[in-house]
């Protein structure tokens, strides 16, 4: 039996007098309760802290609660796994970031975000080497290796290796230039309908663009129409549009940790670096 069996799990930040949905229980079944700090409240529920390790059910439960709150009131969504020992500690945590949270709630409350991912087949792009896609034809402003760069490395040991390195570098530069151009092309159409965006260019080779757009809910239908026109104009690309979601991607990150916009590659590298530690702790 562990020492402390109860803690507060936080789902969202709202104004100080939130209207909570009826009959909605938190993770583990306890009632939602507001914990107030000046003009803000954290919507929390009592949990057994040994019962918050994530699984699909709990993560979806967290999202369900945040979305239900969004239907009733202006909300800042909180990241999964935010557990504090008691209400006093939670109030101090709110107080510590009070001005930032208050400004974020004013900026983001009532807004939604849409997620856009554009996938391509990088090998098919390479066969189309003359840049005839709409994306590439717009130019990139980025340095690109001359086509005969590999040929400049002539004779001697290691030539094949260097040629391979150069070819790979040129391939990556070309891919990034095309993705940048595509990103600008998408933004020219979509950004006028949005309040803000968080773009990630080429987070993986197959994912050309992954952007999140902040919108007034009333603009979602118009945004979708523009999206459908873009999709129809680029049959070789695969478009995914998701949402509307609570504005998770636009909250101000804490000073010491850049959180928004981390690419999947960054996450993968971090996960790989930690995986040994993770598995040894698990045993």
């Amino acid at each position: 039996m562990l020492g402390r069996r109860s803690a507060l799990y936080v789902y969202a930040i709202t104004g100080s007098r939130p209207e909570l949905p009826d009959g909605l229980a938190g993770i583990g079944g306890a009632c939602l309760q507001p914990v107030v700090c000046r003009s803000l409240a954290a919507i929390a529920s009592q949990v057994d802290p040994t019962q918050v390790c994530p699984n699909a059910e709990r993560v979806l439960g967290h999202e369900h609660i945040v979305e239900a709150l969004c239907q009733r009131t202006r909300v800042l969504p909180v990241r999964y796994g935010t557990v504090l020992p008691d209400a006093g500690t939670l109030v101090r945590a709110l107080d510590e970031r009070y001005e930032t949270l208050l400004a974020d709630l004013a900026r983001l409350g009532g807004k939604v975000e849409l997620g856009l991912r554009v996938l391509w087949n990088p090998d098919a792009l390479e066969s189309d080497d003359q840049g005839s896609t709409p994306a590439a034809s717009q130019g990139s402003g980025e340095p690109v290796f001359p086509r005969d760069a590999a040929a400049c490395v002539a004779g001697g040991r290691g030539t094949s290796y260097l040629r391979l390195r150069l070819a790979e570098q040129r391939r990556r530069d070309d891919l990034r230039a095309r993705a940048n151009a595509l990103g600008r092309h998408l933004n020219a159409t979509l950004l006028p309908q949005a309040i803000d965006s968080r773009p990630a260019i080429l987070p993986t080779d197959c994912l050309a663009v992954s952007s999140t757009y902040l919108l007034e809910p009333t603009r979602v239908a118009g945004f979708r129409e523009s999206f459908e026109r873009l999709r129809a104009a680029h049959p070789a690309l695969r478009f995914l549009l998701s949402g509307p979601w609570p504005p998770y991607s636009f909250v101000t990150p804490p000073n010491d940790r850049p959180l928004a916009g981390a690419s999947l590659r960054d996450l993968s590298a971090l996960a790989s670096a930690l995986v040994g530690q993770y598995t040894s702790e698990e045993e």
């Binding site: 562990l2 402390r4 936080v10 802290p49 999202e63 800042l76 935010t82 020992p85 945590a93 909250v251």
Partner: peptide, 18 residues
């Protein structure tokens, strides 16, 4: 979104509970 974004409250406090 839920796992990697959203408000972070005083991260150090969440490190060890019970």
């Amino acid at each position: 979104r839920v796992l990697d974004r959203g408000v972070v409250l005083a991260g150090d406090l969440t490190i060890s509970v019970a």
